[in-house]
Write a protein that binds this DNA or RNA. Structure first.
Lengths: 136, 136
DNA sequence: TTATGTGCAAATCATTTGCAAGATC
DNA sequence: GATCTTGCAAATGATTTGCACATAA
């Protein structure tokens, strides 16, 4: 893989995020620094970086994929109300994979654990109650 | 919510599946019984049924959402190679939610646990080795 | 007969791809 | 200079929506 300024920009921009932005968020932000970068380039590079393990693609929200610059195993919380994705800094349960492997015939390489519920903000801003159900 | 024949057909068709089909799989299958049902109707009804908790929407595969007629809490395995989703009949770890709630400020209602790896079929059919990485 | 649901086509959103031009090695 | 990468526009795939017609309550 050759060097490319755009790829470096994409990776850097993602690393600025504590949250887990979608491709088009990265794109919008980068356009301000580099007004000629294209959306296709952002998608291409996010894909490349995810494939070579430099970043992680999060696929557990309906709609657009999110990306995470933190590739160490860790868990997430997704708000059923606004779709926000945040980290859960609890310890990773390595034993789960062993347990699961007793029940399936394939080869397990790891697991994703995603907690669901209503985030702080949605809770206080009313949107909470019973949930909009919009994300289901 | 009024009764509708099409909604009943969608729900019934989904219940026939041990696997977890996407909307267009349900649509193709239903077209054979009911050649006039429309794709929009299938999408609309899957959405309604998921919102009222009759079925479950699985959002952890990139691309099309999958649907599950089994709404009891249970875990899944996703093949990184072919995208297939299968059940993992291991016991659900209720304590995880309590642990996670110590780390976040929102309200946790539950969790999804998804094991990843390479399924039996992909393993034997060669596609396995190192994985295509296509789904990343 | 009023509210709801359907079918169809067009619209929208997320993502990928073909291709000519530009950058890297 | 051969190969890889970009930007743009068009293509694709998943899902939703507007609207006139059909159906349920």
């Amino acid at each position: 893989m050759n060097y490319s300024r755009q790829r470096e920009e994409v990776q850097e921009q993602l690393s600025f995020h504590h949250d887990h932005p979608t491709a088009d968020v990265i794109y919008s932000e980068l356009r301000e620094k580099d007004p000629t970068i294209s959306l296709a380039t952002v998608y291409r590079n996010l894909k490349l970086l995810a494939q070579n393990g430099t970043i992680r693609r999060l696929t557990f929200v309906s709609g657009a994929d999110h990306f995470d610059s933190n590739i160490d195993p860790h868990y997430h919380f997704v708000c059923d109300c606004c779709g926000k994705v945040i980290d859960v800094p609890m310890q990773v349960a390595e034993t789960l994979d062993d347990t699961a492997s007793k029940y399936i015939s394939g080869n397990i390489t790891g697991h994703d654990l995603v907690f669901r519920g209503v985030c702080d903000e949605c809770m206080t801003s009313g949107r909470s109650s019973v949930g909009s159900g919009d994300m289901l």
